[in-house]
């Protein structure tokens, strides 16, 4: 739910990076953290396990600045991708305004991606959020790896009708990471009247 403070002229939105374990959600947020002007972002909070896997969430606030008459602030979250953290994913989705679904392009991870996509739909529903209404951007990550699946094959699985903006990315090198961020922010802002 977009949080609007009309007096302070502030629009606050929550965007969640979702996807299978090790798909690159945290890498996306870390890249944005390193690239954005430090004066325009807050701390990066990562609640991790001892093995550096996301335990609860990553969080980073970004101050987009004054757009039109309003000041726009974006709160970026990522969920833990590992299957057994389903309750955590569910609660992090609460009140989300937009989703970036990060697909791990490696062929051997395709089943995990499909399961995660299905899990996203289920957890949105559990939060009374309609999958068909929520702004969604799909990022095909790790496409630079030799074992990456062909993009058209992934499109058949995740975006067969071409309904969602999609980006072909490499989060580790930063390729299309910021474009993904821009795409989801634009979508969320445009859909405020629907939220």
């Amino acid at each position: 739910m977009v949080f609007i403070n009309k007096v302070a002229k502030e629009v606050n939105v929550k965007i969640v990076y979702y996807g299978a374990g090790l798909s690159g959600k945290t890498t996306n947020i870390e890249y944005i953290y390193n690239k954005v002007d430090p004066n325009k972002r807050g701390k990066l909070i990562s609640l991790k396990t001892e093995t550096e896997r996301t335990l609860f969430f990553d969080f980073m606030p970004v101050d987009i600045g004054k757009v039109g008459d309003m000041s726009v602030k974006v709160h970026l979250y990522s969920v833990p991708g590992q299957v057994f953290y389903d309750h955590s994913r569910k609660l992090i989705l609460k009140g989300t305004d937009g989703i970036v679904f990060v697909v791990d392009a490696q062929v051997e991870r395709m089943d995990a991606n499909v399961e995660s996509f299905s899990n996203l739909k289920k957890n949105l529903l559990m939060n009374s959020i309609l999958f068909e209404k929520i702004p969604l951007v799909i990022q095909y990550n790790k496409v630079d790896l030799p074992n990456a699946a062909p993009v058209p094959d992934m499109q058949k699985l995740f975006n067969p009708q071409g309904r969602y903006p999609e980006l072909i990315a490499s989060a580790l090198s930063g390729e299309k990471v910021f474009d993904t961020f821009k795409a989801i922010v634009r979508m969320v802002i445009r859909t405020i009247p629907l939220s």
Partner: peptide
């Protein structure tokens, strides 16, 4: 939210400029 109070088109139009600003100093 009374959406009439917020000029979404204006906000969208000026987003790109702000995105460019975001990266300065990264």
């Amino acid at each position: 939210v009374s959406i009439g109070d917020i000029d979404i088109d204006e906000i969208t139009a000026s987003l790109d400029a702000q995105f460019d600003e975001l990266l300065k100093g990264g």
